[in-house]
Write a protein that binds this DNA or RNA. Structure first.
Lengths: 349, 349
DNA sequence: TTGTAGGCGTTATCAT
DNA sequence: ATGATAACGCCTACAA
């Protein structure tokens, strides 16, 4: 590898001191315009690249944000479309602000000794902040991270701590929109395929469902709730169970699009039709929701915006030390498609 | 933030020199067993965390791999399911080897001056290697990166350079499997929805399609080829055009699952049935392929393995300086589902 | 406006 | 087996 060009080298070649070069490069005002010009030109010419490591060492700021995104083989969150779209939003916003993302992959970085805790991994790389996704709040590591003084923002994870916020879509409102939509279509026996109750959205959507049923004048039955893990297969299995009820539902609200699609599959496999026999509403509006068959009515989360919001909240914490907004919520909207409307909906979508 | 614990601090507290601490921590043999024990215990106790920046500075190794993954709003590659599954494989393999991933997000990292080139961004962070996805080989930045001495591996991008490899699935074989499958089902007029011809897979799949048609004794017609951009909408539009042909095809092979699903939508919107009127084969086998309606017959890429392969190739380059294997290819398989088989296929899937 | 020098936390090379 | 000490590349008072 060709010899690296350092600030010292620039100093030597332009005949000024290394301090001056540093100031010129960093846009300090107290540098002669001619000197600056000369240095900038030379830097450009030699394709000088500052060394992040050196700067981090002295400034204690890395301009890197750590990202925790679980990729277990049991729950390949990294493969869950939802998180990707959020990640895209995060990446864009943080990139615009001059930050890069460190996607934590290793439990024993470098030649380390013993596995590093989340917090340790953050300190190791001197990240300026961290974003958590796809984890649960009962994770000890997560809690420890929250208690630290590192600015942290999570998506859908109830984080606690001084320098900590969490963002999420309004699950309660979403549940209400779904129930109301179905009720307006005349449904009375509405089932719910719930997400894992260890996750906040899973809990809130179920809770929201129960309350909305009541407040909208419908009867809620425990046997019309089945549980899944947000993924396709679990949705299918849950639906199979629901179909076995003495008095099966005429509509289902699932806590995720993937589960909703699994449910549709189960319904069709049972020889029934969506929405004529059973109407289905999902949650998320991931890209494939519109491609489902029939196209899935769903509660749309603004995933990109959620990422942007997470990024901005974190930036505010980092750059102006604000300590507010412990929980931010984004509104959701109902996207009505054929899985509830049937052919009449064809005009819209 | 609480005062950081450094090896200097450990040295002071354990009454040895800082050099000894460093050696003890890094497992050098020339350290008294008792001394080492004492130091390790103390480090554990104080939750000592090494500073990556400092180590990087002196060793010139960061144990971080740079990842370029485009997220333009026109082509939100980060949202293309294919890349995520590959990324998951990369992350897992590299993590096991002690590397973390730097997901480049910013064109002007830190307080930098002017936008950084890809190469510059890599040097800036001292990454030990880089992985490229979702870019095209006609990108000047990509080419420059390839020409550098930085170990690079790309997925589906034809990279050129000394320290460079690229991995991909065997598109030619895939095309052949698709055509053969359709021919075996009795199809003669087979259309192709091609990917962008600037991308290598797009080119190879089209080429493979043309050749296979010939070698399998079928006639190839230019008007039975339409072009898309791998995404859903483009597949639908392409299919609409194909349906307008004087003599429409009885089967379609699309260069991606998303396009294949778009094509199915167009077919169904035209009042036709898949596969009775037109059979459809995709490429990728992304998660939703099995959830499509009807479930999509497709050429399965081993996406996770592709990521693993990319990671391992890169590691070999980095750690043993091997300079071989400029292009590695992974076999693909045909997954037959109802979009070509119809109801008879129900037993299998 | 510019130069000097100390220090950020580690590793690595000498001695001892 | 251990201790000094010089880098690594950069920023930042403080002086000039």
């Amino acid at each position: 590898m060709r010899k690296q060009i350092t600030i010292r080298e620039l100093a030597r070649l332009s005949g000024v001191s290394i301090g001056t070069v540093s100031r010129a490069l960093n846009g300090y005002p107290d540098v002669g315009p001619d000197t600056r010009e000369r240095i900038l030109l030379l830097a450009e010419e030699l394709d000088y690249t500052p060394a992040a490591a050196a700067r981090t060492l002295v400034t204690q700021r890395s301009h890197v944000i750590g990202v925790f995104l679980e990729t277990g083989r049991d729950h390949p969150h990294l493969q869950h479309p939802f998180f990707h779209e959020v990640l895209a939003g995060i990446k864009e916003r943080l990139g615009a602000a001059g930050y890069d993302l460190l996607l934590f992959a290793s439990e024993h970085p470098g030649n380390g000794f013993g596995p590093h805790s989340y917090l340790k991994r953050c300190r190791h790389h001197h990240v300026d902040g961290a974003i958590l996704m796809g984890l649960t709040s009962d994770d000890v590591e997560v809690q420890r991270l929250g208690r630290s003084s590192l600015p942290c923002v999570s998506v859908d994870v109830e984080l606690e701590g001084e320098q900590t916020s969490w963002v999420s879509s309004d699950s309660t409102q979403g549940a209400r929109l779904a129930v109301k939509h179905l009720r307006d279509l005349g449904h009375k026996r509405i089932a719910h395929i719930a997400g894992p109750q260890e996750t906040t959205p899973g809990m809130e959507r179920l809770r929201g469902f129960q309350r909305s049923m009541q407040s909208l004048g419908l009867s809620y039955f425990d046997e019309l709730v089945a549980y899944g893990d947000y993924y396709y297969d679990s949705g299918r299995e849950a639906m199979v169970r629901l179909l076995e009820a003495d008095d099966p539902p005429t509509a289902v609200f699932a806590a995720s699009d993937m589960m909703a699609m699994g449910a549709m599959r189960a319904i069709q496999a049972a020889g029934l039709t969506v929405p004529d026999d059973i109407a289905v509403v999902g949650f998320d509006d991931i890209q494939v929701a519109a491609m489902a068959h029939p196209p899935l009515t769903t509660i749309r989360q603004e995933k990109g915006d959620l990422g942007t919001l997470a990024a901005e909240t974190l930036l505010r914490r980092i750059e102006s030390g604000e300590d507010t907004d412990t929980h931010l919520t984004l509104p959701v909207t109902l996207v009505a498609r054929q899985s509830t409307l049937g052919e009449q909906g064809l005009s819209g979508s």
